[in-house]
Amino acid sequence: MSDHPLAPLTALARDTPVVEKIGGITITENPDLAIASLAVRHGRELDLQTLLTPVLGEDLPGPGRAAFLEDTAAIWTGIGQWFLMSPVAKHPDYAWDMKYIVKDTASVTEQTDGWVIFDVIGDSLSPLLERICNLNVNAMSDGDATRCLIEHLGCLIICRESGRNISIFGPRSSAASLHHILVTAAKSVA
């Protein structure tokens, strides 16, 4: 751990995460996830899987899916490409840590600060989600994860618990816009 004096800001440019409770829905900014992207090198799929199995405990997820493990999650983001996530406190330089594990079987890229993450929790999220994105959210089951468009923003939606617990990843620079969209829609359906 480094002990530099620079203080981080969340994507919404605050010292602490913003939490909004609207009706039965809670929208929380989550700055605590380290993210690294993995892109498998040509012909190294099996080698990558072999190196990752001890860390993940299972196979990398397939298209449209995410896998949740103890303190690590893996999301399929494209052909031969995944996001791995873990608490930032544990992995201040997650890409470097992953590179150490996967060696030359995959290209690893720092993505931690590329995204703003909003955890959205409530008893019924469908009315909110159907206002903001074109996915058939009622058909999303636990562990489904996909990129989609939210008001022109390329986002990533992870369904942790169908209809009740999702995470929305959006481009970090547009955190304020994405937050506005979520809060406006939540108020509209509250």
Binding site: G78, T146, C148, L149, G154
Partner: peptide
């Protein structure tokens, strides 16, 4: 062609394929 056409589409807001 007015008819069947093979064309390229990029899934920019998806998996980038």
């Amino acid at each position: 062609p007015a008819g069947s056409h093979r064309e390229l589409w990029f899934h920019e807001q998806g998996d980038r394929s």
